[in-house]
Design a binder for these strands. Structure first.
Lengths: 104, 104
DNA sequence: CCAAAGGTTCGATTTGCATCTTACCTCAGT
DNA sequence: ACTGAGGTAAGATGCAAATCGAACCTTTGG
């Protein structure tokens, strides 16, 4: 499977998909954590400590990736996730700040 | 049924509910139209010309009302909907602009 | 007074989503 | 070479959401 699979380009990102992805509290917590760290921070899926099974983890990260919110790159054994900060901030200015302000 | 039924106060509005409400394209189009009109504009549910049945209309407007995005007031025969612009803009600054920018 | 228009409620259907278990793959380290 | 850790894929399940038709209520306009 190619690396760029399932990553929409900036102009393919749809607001509906983004909002649907962010409607889930677990996915929102992932974006909130990534948005709070320095730009370019890469983390593995399992480093977020979400209280779900591995299969469900894959499911949630695919939703985020296909919405265009994160980029996933294989590095050795793991798949590192980074926030697509520029793309999101350009297309939807203020959205990340709204997510960061949420009290979980 | 009292008038204020189903309207959360400002501090009861939850981001998750708001995003879930806005994940639907029909509901998003309602907010987009209201956001484009002058503040305080009141419109009836049926004036949006959504391609769904009356029962489904009721369903969608309840989702928007319970999320805290609109206020609904009975006026004679109809139930007028107004955007809760202040509340939304205060809690989620920039959100309405993001919705207005979408090309439907 | 009657009819039509605007909404709501109920019950049914259908579809999609979150979740899990199981099985499998691949790389890293020993 | 084996094992374990990180992830993916497939299939099942349970629940919530979107949709509709039909019945009903209220108000406005003839």
């Amino acid at each position: 499977m190619p690396d760029e699979e399932g990553h929409p380009s900036r102009d393919e990102i749809e607001l509906g998909r983004v909002l649907a992805a962010l409607a889930d509290p677990l996915r929102r917590s992932v974006i909130r954590e990534l948005a709070a760290e320095p730009d370019g921070t890469a983390r593995t899926c399992s480093s977020f400590g979400l209280p779900v099974s591995k299969a469900t983890l894959t499911h949630h990260f695919r939703a985020l990736r296909e919405a265009g919110l994160i980029r996933q790159v294989d590095r050795g054994n793991s798949r590192m996730a980074t926030l697509r900060r520029d793309d999101v901030e350009t297309l939807f200015p203020g959205l990340l700040a709204i997510l960061r302000a949420e009290q979980p």
